[in-house]
Design a protein around this nucleic acid. Structure first.
Lengths: 144, 144
DNA sequence: TATTGTTATACTCTATAACTATA
DNA sequence: TATAGTTATAGAGTATAACAATA
């Protein structure tokens, strides 16, 4: 290797390979999620939102958690309401609207959680120690 | 071989947390890609296809590599041809069409590669040893 | 009969811009 | 003036189904 000991950064090629790997694994995780909830007959964004809604939550916070635009959260909230899974309640600050899960929403949330955490659980092929290492490395990648 | 008696599998919660982490990191990698190619003014799927095209490649293989439907590859191939980045050539098996990069396509490919492998290289904050560990763990997750 | 690719179409996810209502 | 949410609209990305050509 011609690299100096101080030049520890990844080569363009290594960097790309690693990024591709990560994306592949993430795609698989997503597929797993999609497959797990399929029997429930829910669109993925709906399921993701229901999963978030452990308590009444400002639409704005939902946008942050989902990493999407507030206007899209309006759409999502409408769809959850249409399905009877949540309802909007006005916050103390009257500009804010909280999305509050209905009993049906909470029940569904449990079913989704059971489905995605069930027999097809992610990373079940890694021993606990390795999962911990992986987790730590990923967190460092997020620090940036 | 039976399972270890020490229940080593992830809890539903751990599994979900890990999956969420992976997806976050992958999203970041995707954002990085998008940002890196932005100056080139190319839609992401076009850039991804150009990057694949190191040699004439059957449309079918492109679909496999991209993980998408063949009908979408038709669309992509059309768009690359429109931009003068590739052309279709008929294969020996005359059902097959190969997508062949033009000189302009190859040139652009180099520019894309340089952009995505450049200063914003993925995982540059991890030392080489850690990158290797990460890579190995990810590969095990893909084995399934 | 199975496989490659194409066509026409349609759908999902998601954002942008302009707006309303509070604060 | 700044923030939360909404409306209307549009666009990207991608799939499905039926089909054609070749094997």
């Amino acid at each position: 290797m011609k690299e100096s000991p101080l030049e520890d950064g990844p080569s363009p090629d290594e960097s790309r390979t690693l990024a591709r790997l990560i994306v592949q694994v993430a795609d698989r995780a997503r597929d797993r999620f999609t497959t797990a909830i399929e029997p429930l007959g829910l669109p993925v964004p709906i399921a993701r939102t229901v999963l978030l809604l452990t308590h009444p939550m400002p639409l704005r916070e939902i946008a942050d958690q989902l990493g999407c635009d507030p206007s899209y959260v309006t759409t999502l909230a409408d769809r959850l309401e249409d399905r009877g899974l949540a309802r909007r309640v006005t916050g103390e600050d009257r500009r804010v609207k909280l999305l509050e899960p209905t009993p049906a929403g909470l029940e569904l949330q449990k079913r989704i959680a059971a489905a995605v955490g069930g027999s097809a659980a992610f990373a079940r092929q890694l021993p606990a120690a390795d999962r911990q290492v992986l987790s730590a490395l990923l967190e460092r990648l997020l620090e940036d």
